[in-house]
């Protein structure tokens, strides 16, 4: 059971790929049609929030399950 989850607002994402660069768990992939980021492997998220911290487009939200250890 995963403790974290990630979402990308594709309306805001500008396909720069910085989340792909910083994620230690390969959560993101840039989709073929427009290069925007998709959290294809969200189950692997460890909640480090590096993607959230670096995303220049305010597109990423990282969620924590209530009660989970950060």
């Amino acid at each position: 059971m995963n403790k974290f989850d990630v979402s990308v607002d594709t309306r805001l994402c500008k396909a720069c790929g910085l989340c792909v660069l910083v994620c230690p768990k390969k959560v993101f992939e840039l989709r073929d049609e427009d290069g925007k980021s998709v959290p294809v492997n969200a189950l692997a998220c460890i909640g480090c929030t590096q993607c959230y911290q670096i995303c220049p487009d305010f597109a990423i939200t990282v969620y924590k399950k209530e009660g989970a250890l950060a």
Binding site: K14, G47, T49, Y52, D57, T61, V62, Y63, E66
Partner: peptide, 25 residues
Amino acid sequence: SFVPMSSAPDKWLRKEHLPHIWCPG
């Protein structure tokens, strides 16, 4: 049961003006 790890955007961003004008990256 899943909550955002930061709520900064809601309070401090004028979300209605996003996406911003800056280039990708």
